[in-house]
Design a protein around this nucleic acid. Sequence first.
DNA 1: TCTGGGGTCCTAGGACCC
DNA 2: TCTGGGGTCCTAGGACCC
Length: 428
Amino acid sequence: MSVVFALVDCNNFYVSCERLFKPDLRGRPVVVLSNNDGCIIARSNEAKKLGIGMGEPFFKKKAFLQQQGVQVFSSNYALYGDLSHRVMSILQQLEPEVEIYSIDEAFIRLPVQHDRTMTECALNLKERVGRCVGIPVSVGMGRTKTLAKIATSVAKEYPGYQGVFDLERCPDQEAVLATVKVNKVWGIGGRSTKKLNRQGVFTALDLKNSDGRRIRTVLGLPGLRAVMELRGESCIHLEQCPSARKSIVSSRSFRKPITSLQDLKEAVSSYISIAASKLRDQGLAAANLHVFLSTSRFRTDIPQFSGSRMITLPQATSCTPTLIKAGLRELTALYKPGYPYNKAGIMFTGLSHATMQQQNLFISAGDIRNKPLMEALDRINDYWGRDTLRYGSSGLAREWSMKQVWKSPAYTTSWTELPMVGTHQVKG
DNA sequence: TCTGGGGTCCTAGGACCC
DNA sequence: TCTGGGGTCCTAGGACCC
């Protein structure tokens, strides 16, 4: 039996999440900012029409946004993550073969049915998510994931389709592909677009009709895959079970540049604490710890430094104090005084299951003794909030911490921030 | 004077994604 | 003054081995 891929994509997801609790913002321009209120990373359709680009630095647009009455939000990942989970649950209830691809997208494999039934199925998904969660979605269908992606962009672009477009049963598929610029094809980014343009390839249709061997030499394997997928040969399969994580990163830009090793130590300790609790949450242990540090690449007026160091631990671990100790040692070796640093971070690699560790005769059993402590720490922070208990090395004043001026409440994930309906007190 | 060839593994960096 | 963060895969090149 042949199948098609459907892609369910939440419209302007972060903006839709914010609007859910502020319905008066419907029809009005809204943007959501990245961490540290740095860039614009989500825009409502009204904001897009004002010419606000994806990824634009906020400080450059601030005056314009104010003048146009655009509502601004700092990002609230607790809220977005929770609503994403609710959307995905609905899809999984309705369809057996679902791949959660990102926070706002899911691929679904549908058996090919009668033309009308397919579209009805997609409309049903859209209606159910809208009714149960309140997030608007678009659905595109195609013989491959790449074609489904294109179909979704068509569904969003032309209101006449009511948010659902089936490219597989489109009478003139090639005419549609001719309207899609090649940089909109999944897997073709800015660098590849320049190379393709030099080869005379400008649209998705051009790429589809290109010589695969030539594209392979220009773009490598990913380019060839894009060509095959556009031709309807599925190369990227549905992954229902997420594969094991290979790395965990925690990094942030600072509120303002910092120069002292002491401040950097606090930041790095805090990032290690965050990432180590993620390790434990997923039952993993890390064998390698990378520490990195950099000045702002946008500041051409100051001396630049960017570097990283990696250490392989004597034994894979998820124990916060052990990791902090190793991380601070690496940071001290990496640190060069005199530079205004704007970002630091850490990464864990060499991940394995915590229960399947080769024991080392020559290493102290400190990490094992710390296990109940880590469990208690995680339980308390899960319940009372991430920073309730933290290591002293993470600091108290935290001059370096993120800027988040316009953050909405954690409406759905914190009892103290639930939205209020009226203010009546219950007596009795 | 003249210094192989092929395989594997690892790593850093590039490119891309959301 | 102010420009995100967290991921994956691929490739080229170096180290090493026989």
